[in-house]
């Protein structure tokens, strides 16, 4: 799935498989963290459901910006799924720290591609996460099935899955790119902060971004952040369909390619710069 350089030579595949397996094992060590983490993912959702229920009770309307109360709940549930794919906790800070601390040398010495390694380690993380989280996710969705209008058709479903997978990659490459700024700046925490702020509000995690009208709404819809949460959820709910959907997916794909190129370029020049320093 990765655009990273996974060539089909058997020994290379074996190397990657070993890396993947070790990453999975490492993840499994923190068992307590895991079980708790999965359960807690749904806690903020609870407050959001109550908040919107109170908002709908306050207003006398049936819909807000084209979303009914049921739509809102469904939307938040779906953004949770999307974020389960696209969130990359600690990736950018980890890279920046490795660059600053000199740990990055490890990747320059060993015959392992760093971006590929990090991507695999995230894949491992996610696989383990889904393994543990599938049951609670299924339970929550089963309990909340009343908020959905049944399953969407096969085409929509395919588009939804595609947008989730691309969301994972976009999330990864965006965070990795942020971390690689560490090659050029000693202190990336301030930029990372802006980035986290943007992903939190602009991704649609907090509210459906089409609630915003005017130039601000337009601006939100031009950013790649929407693919991290809003876009997959909107597809599933049928807010985006037909030619709009095809176009939307195409734009998402273009963003993904652009981010991969940017990430690779940044790494290439970053390493050059790093080696130049002799650090």
């Amino acid at each position: 799935m990765a655009a990273a350089a996974i060539h089909a030579s058997p020994s290379k595949l074996k190397t990657w498989w070993t890396i993947l397996r070790i990453c999975i094992e490492e993840r499994l060590v923190y068992r307590g963290d895991f079980a708790l983490g999965t359960l807690m993912r749904f806690l903020p959702l609870v407050t959001q459901v109550f908040l919107w229920s109170a908002v709908f009770a306050g207003t006398k309307q049936q819909e807000i910006a084209g979303y009914s109360y049921r739509d809102f709940v469904a939307y938040y549930l779906l953004t949770n799924v999307a974020r389960a794919f696209s969130s990359m906790p600690g990736l950018a800070t980890g890279i920046a720290r490795q660059v600053r601390g000199g740990e990055i040398k490890k990747f320059l010495i060993q015959p392992v591609d760093m971006v590929g390694f990090l991507l695999l380690s995230r894949v491992a993380h996610k696989l383990v996460y889904y393994g543990v989280a599938l049951a609670p996710f299924a339970l929550v969705f089963y309990l909340c099935r009343g908020f959905f209008n049944g399953w969407p058709d096969a085409a929509t479903m395919t588009a939804f899955v595609a947008s989730l997978l691309m969301g994972f990659l976009i999330g990864f490459y965006m965070e990795a790119l942020m971390g690689m700024l560490g090659f050029w700046m000693l202190e990336v925490s301030s930029l990372l902060f802006v980035f986290i702020l943007f992903t939190f509000f602009f991704s649609g995690h907090m509210f459906p971004i089409d609630m915003l009208s005017g130039w601000l709404g337009w601006f939100f819809r031009q950013m790649p952040f929407q693919y991290l949460a809003y876009f997959p959820a909107a597809i599933f709910l049928g807010k985006i369909s037909g030619p709009d959907l095809a176009w939307g997916l195409a734009v998402e794909f273009a963003w993904l390619i652009a981010l991969i190129i940017a990430c690779r370029t940044a790494f290439h020049y970053g390493v050059k710069r790093y080696a130049g320093y002799g650090g």
Binding site: I24, E25, L28, V29, R31
Partner: peptide, 13 residues
């Protein structure tokens, strides 16, 4: 005591 191997790690859960 962490055991080696993927299966053992899963068991460790």
């Amino acid at each position: 005591q962490k055991k080696e191997g993927l299966l053992a790690s899963v068991g460790g859960l």
